[in-house]
Design a protein around this nucleic acid. Sequence first.
DNA 1: GCATCATTCAAACGACCGTTTGAATCAGGT
DNA 2: ACCTGATTCAAACGGTCGTTTGAATGATGC
Lengths: 250, 250
Amino acid sequence: MVPPSRRQDTAGRARADTRARILHAAQAVFMERGFASSSLRTITARARVNLAAVNYHFGSKEALIREVFERHLAPLNRARIAYLDRLEAEANGRALAPERIIEAMVAPALQVSRDPVKGGAVFLCLLGRAFSEPAQYMRAFLPAQYRDVVVRFKRALMRALPQIPEQDLVWRMHFMFGAMSYAMAGNDALQLIATCPVDGADDAEAVIRRLVPFLTAGLQGSAAPAPLTAVPASPRRPRGSGGVVARKAA
Amino acid sequence: MVPPSRRQDTAGRARADTRARILHAAQAVFMERGFASSSLRTITARARVNLAAVNYHFGSKEALIREVFERHLAPLNRARIAYLDRLEAEANGRALAPERIIEAMVAPALQVSRDPVKGGAVFLCLLGRAFSEPAQYMRAFLPAQYRDVVVRFKRALMRALPQIPEQDLVWRMHFMFGAMSYAMAGNDALQLIATCPVDGADDAEAVIRRLVPFLTAGLQGSAAPAPLTAVPASPRRPRGSGGVVARKAA
DNA sequence: GCATCATTCAAACGACCGTTTGAATCAGGT
DNA sequence: ACCTGATTCAAACGGTCGTTTGAATGATGC
């Protein structure tokens, strides 16, 4: 049964936005069920288009997933680099403050979260989840999308924090990405921690305003790697676990 | 065809470790393919047990997934609380240093990563990935597993950092969990950032040694939420995006 | 009006999924 | 030797999956 409301539009209009309808529905369903558990039948039903339209317009489910990300991620990462460009132009060769660099990373993300046309908060959640996706088509796709951003921001941070060895800086950038991804993806995972109600949990701007000082402090930190004093024989081991189990390295 | 090598064992031995073989294989397959894309046929084939054994021993695929986590996560979180207990006993009522509290959080995880019997590094990776799992049986399971840990560590951190408002502290704990999960789950996502080779990427101890000062610095931070100065009209917007697209709030 | 091309549609394809079944096999108690 | 309860096994169940097919439908240029 063809939905009558769309039949009233000119057929050209209905045709033209089939791709957009699929992308919009796919983003929502992926958010609810994950990629593997989202069937094309569920997506096309929500988009009110024919099942075969996905393969016609995108070629495959994998290509659809990639497109859902690329259409918003590429502009986001371009905006980040543009932001950094502007900061460096204003600095006239002087080194940037670390928090300004982090700001160039998160402020464009904030704009995405506020603008549904740019993806909205749903897209940021999906993006945070994408980093722990084991599928290999994702593990090849994401690094390619982020390569330029990583190169530019790493260079800027090395200039801003010359006293931090490169190895330490790379690790801290890694942790920084983790906190960012988690903060954006897991707004409901926050309720895990909150034994009290948390204000602004659904306000991306509030999240980011609290995220920047956290990242800035962590990134600068004390140069010393760590004391990690009392590792010896964890107090009161929860299990004896006597038997030796054969294991291959996994 | 029954594998002859296991027929040479006493049948009792072969029977007794069917559960363990399934759990071990499931952990490995989940790591490689994710939960939804891991079929019971793949898991039982790798474990060299019959397909029906999963439903016989665990009841369902969902129950198997829960068991894979619970058997190692429950002892891990008990060890964290025990570690915190010992620190507080040693402190004799004095407030703990924040880095010691964080140490109580990550040191037991380090021990897990070093001991295959406790789950090994593979389990930590899987655990980090579990937080972004959208399936609702996971979103109910994980908070229950972490509730005691969250309550105890939140209380300890509030005592250690009384100048930080509770709302700020909850958010920073959230970011802390994010950086931890990401650091443990995404040891290969690190290669995303590394434009140069990174030492100790597969050494969980090295990871944690760098993680603690990052988290400590971020957690203490400056109390001020954020400046976030230059958000207005992101410089050089990457796309005009003229058309208005109808969107429901998602 | 007619040919052309892009798009939509219902239907089906083969493959794989989690789960169930009922018989076969085993250890242990008597 | 025989029964009993636990475990393993091959086979099948009903469903859902991504993808393909070939005909119908629409707009466009002549």
